[in-house]
Amino acid sequence: MSWISKTFSSSIGRKIIMAITGLFLCSFLVVHLVGNLQLFKADNGVAFNAYSEFMGHNPIIRTLEIVLVLGFGFHIYEGLSLAIKNRSARGSQGYVSNHIEQNSSWHSRSMAMLGSIVLFFLIVHLYNFFGSLRFTDVPRDANGNEDAYALVLAAFKNPFYVALYVVAQFALLYHLLHGFSSAFQTLGLTHRKYTPAIKFVGYAFSIVVCAAFAAMPVYFFFFK
């Protein structure tokens, strides 16, 4: 095995993959959120559809899409396989009495479970929008852009989708509350002066991003 594969197959190397892909996916959340905020514009989706058309056809975006798929792929694969490895490291005989809640937070211990909920949501979400836009013929709006806005309107009239989307944002919130600052710790980027700021930014980021995403299905269900 070369030193590179040895590095990234060691327990610390795999954690570093989790941290780098995790922070990369955080940057994706920002881009995705900023674009989607156009759903709140009172123009019946003209701006959103133009943006959606651009994201679906621009060659640079389409190339970055491959990087994004790789980012998700590595994060999901390493996350699940590390969770299995860590469980087996605990041994076959567990504790009869274990008060782990007295020394760590619930969400920090539940990253694999929270991530799995987000993964389930991701699959449904891709089916709802990405799948239709990329693989089927979608009606076009007055400007000749694919009418992604109409897909959003239709999906968020379904109470099951609205409920799933909101629950998934709560899972993402708790996933990020631990994950954001945990990534910096894994990368060794800690400092007595800056770590408190990283923790604060991580909390603010998680709450703002997840609240804004959760607001979209709720807004469309009740007000559109």
């Binding site: 610390i12 954690k15 590390l82 020394n103 760590s104 945990s182 710790q185 060794g188 800690t190």
Partner: peptide
């Protein structure tokens, strides 16, 4: 592998801090 939950440092009888794990990384 470490997931930075912090149980170790909370239960350490001599108070080894999580800062050391960042140094290790």
């Amino acid at each position: 592998a470490c997931t930075n939950i912090g149980s170790c440092a909370a239960e350490c009888p001599v108070g080894i801090s999580l800062e050391n794990i960042a140094i290790l990384n």
